[in-house]
Design a protein around this nucleic acid. Sequence first.
RNA 1: GGGUAGGUACCAGAGUGGCCAAAUGGGGCGGACUGUAAAUCCGCUGGCUUACGCCUACGGGGGUUCGAAUCCCUCCCUGCCCA
Length: 393
Amino acid sequence: MLTIDEILSRGVSEVIVEANVRRKLNAGKPLRLKLGIDPTRSDIHIGHAVALRKMRQFQELGHTVVLIVGDWTAQIGDPTGRDESRPRLTVEETKSNAKYYMDQVFKVIDPAKTEVRWQSEWFGQFDLEKAFGLIGRFTVNQMLAHETFRKRYEAGQQLTVLELMYPMLQAYDSIAIKPDIEFGGTDQKFNILAGRQLMEQMGMESQDVILVPLIIGTDGRKMSKSFNNSVDILMSPNDKYGKIMSMGDDVLPVYYEVWSDAPLAEVKAMSEAIKAGSVNPRDLKMQLARDIIRQLDGEAAAAEAEAEFIRVFQQRDLPTDMPEVALSEAANIVDLLVSTKLAASKGEARRLIDGGGVRLAGEKISSYDSLVQPVGEQILQVGRRKFVKLLGN
RNA sequence: GGGUAGGUACCAGAGUGGCCAAAUGGGGCGGACUGUAAAUCCGCUGGCUUACGCCUACGGGGGUUCGAAUCCCUCCCUGCCCA
């Protein structure tokens, strides 16, 4: 089990107020750990999961996670880091997203030590009087001090009053569930601190804060679906393995710090060894990929994904299973590529042939009018990753 | 309400009557190389057609013209400034 020192430093960017957190941890009482989840986006990637992993460590010490489904804030959309307003979600979308979200979250945290609460429990019967009471405790000046809002305001971009409500609602969640510590990414600092302020104003003991770093994507940019550099929790183990292997060498230490339990000193040494060229980053990536998948999908899946990766990508061998297509009569290669969905159109099929990317039984195809005969089993391959097994008569 | 700038392919963004299936970058795909699906380099990137060519596409609709992403009318949408 990790020590308190490790828990509070490893993969953590900031603890506010650290002395309080230590005091609470040493008091021996189960703590309530708040995490707001935003059921806006559907897929959680291993960047989001850093906070979850941290909370898991707390759970192992006997503390309770309180997951707040932000079904009201989701209707606003977290403005943090956004340079434009987000479309509002419908109630139905929020509900189905939330369920999908839960399925993923519980791959990391322990459901038995988790309490799930919905914002609608307290906001559902909020009336205007209560709303005034909440809004009245914040100032426009304060909101404009938040970089996200200020930038947009100063740039003359649209900034709705509704968006200003987001931090206030998130803050009020803390009034409703009385957490000891709130967790979030560093980008959540403003919102979480608003909760501290509100609790104090309303005569409660303020929550403390643990901020975790925003993990960077496999290409070194911020991890995000739209950059195609994320490793999603629900991806198949094989895909996760490949994604992790494709990360740039320089981001490797960051992942190690956050996702492995190897001692920090070891991670540091590793980072230097990579720079010095005395170690092959590939091997470290393989170890990391296996470790992450083991945590999310279990040891067996991790071992299998690794074996598959070695087979297909390192030895350029064939995958263990691939789609099978029956071939009853000779077919033109271009048509076949389209009908097996290896190419999206005939034009694309021809381009792939031109580019030398099409192989039948290991032989490169170079002509559009090659005929494929229906003899036995043949592997039709596009690029290094797409295979179809053709079954002849 | 007044003024003004815009809406172009997956995204960003050029193009302002023919040389435009539309520059460039990103993304994606393919190839080479490698230590890995890192990095680097090269190619491709609407559909049909083995080619000629045809069709679809520059917010919607209509028009001018031999010819329109480009000009005109109209409608829809968005940003900004002033109130």
